[in-house]
């Protein structure tokens, strides 16, 4: 029996652009569907920020006027937006690295990045829903005067602002495997929220904490959210730059670890 080696045929295995795009779309659709149907993920992510905002932002500060009410919406908005990024990305990646789904996806001809893109779309969608819920509560219950442009800006800030936290979650997901991930994510999520003044406004925190606040990405997103709601006139360029660099660095580190370990 003689053997011949197969030539790499350029046509075999090639995929039309339309089908390729379809694959990205199918991945994003599946990712959104599976989490929309998972109350274990959806309820905590939706309920915590809305409950916190209702109790601490609206009930306790009933008489909060103008800027105070805006500040609270921005704070709890950022608090809410961090969680689909950190949990949606970090915990699911950690789980899927352990349970073999990521291995299977890597063995299958899934187009590059479709897996991460799908999770990104899902996190953006979830943070969009959170932002809409908070906006509805702010307008309906706290009677916060907001114009359409501000609401749209806040929504856009929330949906884009989730991305650096997706990158951070992804990095954690590559460092921790399986069941340990939620604990680690909470150890990052809750202290970071507190230290960047999302629960208690920064000016009320000890000055040492105020000074280190700029190292937390959440503090920069809060500045952007405040600006979106029409507060402050400070230039937002530096905040955007910090979030961008932070997100890109986390993402690159995570991708490197994923490539090496899988």
């Amino acid at each position: 029996m003689s053997t011949i080696a197969i030539e790499a045929m350029p046509s075999a295995g090639a995929m039309s652009l339309r089908r390729l795009f379809g694959a990205y779309l199918a991945e994003a659709r599946s990712e959104c569907l599976r989490y929309l149907r998972a109350p274990g993920f959806l309820l905590p992510v939706m309920l915590f920020p809305t409950m916190f905002y209702l109790l601490f932002g609206i009930v306790i500060h009933q008489n909060a006027q103008g800027d105070a009410a805006r500040y609270l919406l921005a704070s709890y908005g950022v608090f809410g937006v961090m969680s689909p990024g950190l949990f949606g990305f970090g915990v699911s990646l950690a789980m899927e690295r352990e349970n073999g789904l990521l291995t299977l996806k890597r063995a299958l001809p899934m187009p590059p990045g479709a897996y991460l893109l799908g999770k990104m779309v899902m996190a953006m969608l979830a943070s969009g829903v959170i932002a809409v819920l908070l906006l509805a509560m702010a307008i309906g219950l706290a009677h916060l005067p907001l114009d359409v442009a501000q609401a749209v800006c806040f929504l856009a800030t929330s949906m884009l602002g989730v991305l650096p936290f997706c990158a951070l979650g992804m990095l954690v997901g590559t460092l921790v495997k399986g069941q340990g991930a939620p604990a680690i994510i909470n150890i990052i999520y809750l202290p970071m929220s507190f230290l960047s003044g999302l629960w208690i406004p920064l000016p009320l925190l000890p000055s040492a904490l105020q000074q280190i606040a700029p190292i937390w990405p959440s503090a920069h997103l809060q500045a952007l959210a405040l600006r979106a709601l029409g507060m402050g006139h400070a230039a937002v360029g530096s905040n955007v730059a910090v979030l961008l660099v932070f997100g890109v660095v986390c993402f690159m580190l995570a991708v490197r670890r994923l490539r090496r370990l899988g």
Binding site: L33, R34, N99, L101, T103, L104, P109, P111
Partner: peptide, 21 residues
């Protein structure tokens, strides 16, 4: 290379697929 893998099918020993799909 993804073009090579588009010609294969895979069933691994342990893979938990998304439970809610």
């Amino acid at each position: 290379q993804i073009d090579a893998r588009r010609r294969i099918g895979v069933m691994l020993q342990s893979a938990s697929l998304p439970a809610t799909l």
